[in-house]
Amino acid sequence: MKKYLKDLEEELRKNNLNEKEIEEILADHEEMIEAAINDGLSDEELNTKFGDPKTVAEELSGFSESESDDDKEHKKQDGKMMVFDNIDENYNVNIALINEDISVQSNDSNNITVEFFGITNIDKYQIEYKKNTFILKSPKEIRKSYFGFSKNRRFVVTLPKNLQINDFEMKLINADAKIDDILSAKTLVDTKNGDLKLKNIKTGEFRFNSINGDSTLETINCDKIKISTISGDLQIENLKAKGEMFVNSVSGDLRIKDSECLNVTLKTVSGDIKATEFYPKTVTLSSVSGDIKIVNTDSSRPIEVTHKRSLSGDVDIILKKKKE
């Protein structure tokens, strides 16, 4: 035990930990080893339970106060801003992130600004505006694993409100995202696990894909929209599509509220689709085992069912009297 502690102390010093920390770590280890001996562990068992002091020291130095220059550095960078000016009318936006959360908003300036928080390797990201296109992309090599040790890494992108976007494209893996106030000709949002909140989107063609992420779409104006989700739940509120709306869910539950479109196709395997005050002109419903239900109160806006098919799910359109 004495030898282990001595070796550990040596290794800790090698890793430049400060005195106070070394003292604390040694005391903790003395206590833990003592407890282990009290528990009846043999020397051999002690060796396997406690392992190599070198490894502990190296692990510890990774986040010790004396070595947290890296931390300090990125704290310094927090809230730092990159600004792109001379943005063209009808520019494109292309965002592809793996683990970083993002919030996209717009304001009256004519610049694009990117703020970042908790990002230690900002130089590894592709952030630029060239050839009419704003690009924000995660580094190709994934430095951190999907799981664990994930510090809160986040971008805030502010786009110019007065300039129209041509193509808005955002692809996310684990990142959560918030988009508010976007005007574009075409919009594609694609998420694997991240939860998304989209609000105030005005666009021509809107395509939305989600695998696991739960998402909300609120106040959307578009020409046509295609939504696909595997197991993520989706909430749609106040959506207006001039033309087609196409919704496909495997097991995700969908809620639609206060929305309208020309024709809608609702397809589900086992997810439930529940709509209230949803007024398409015509509707095609298809379900395997999920329930599809549309509950409306306005009798002056009838819905024509062009096609209805279900294996075991209940598929219904119900007209309720308005509550006085």
């Binding site: 903790d28 280890h29 833990m32 406690f50 392992g51 002091p53 692990e59 510890l60 986040f63």
Partner: peptide, 12 residues
């Protein structure tokens, strides 16, 4: 797993 993985995590 052993101590040299667990302890640094607890400390952090």
């Amino acid at each position: 797993v052993n101590e040299n993985t667990i302890y640094p995590i607890m400390r952090r």
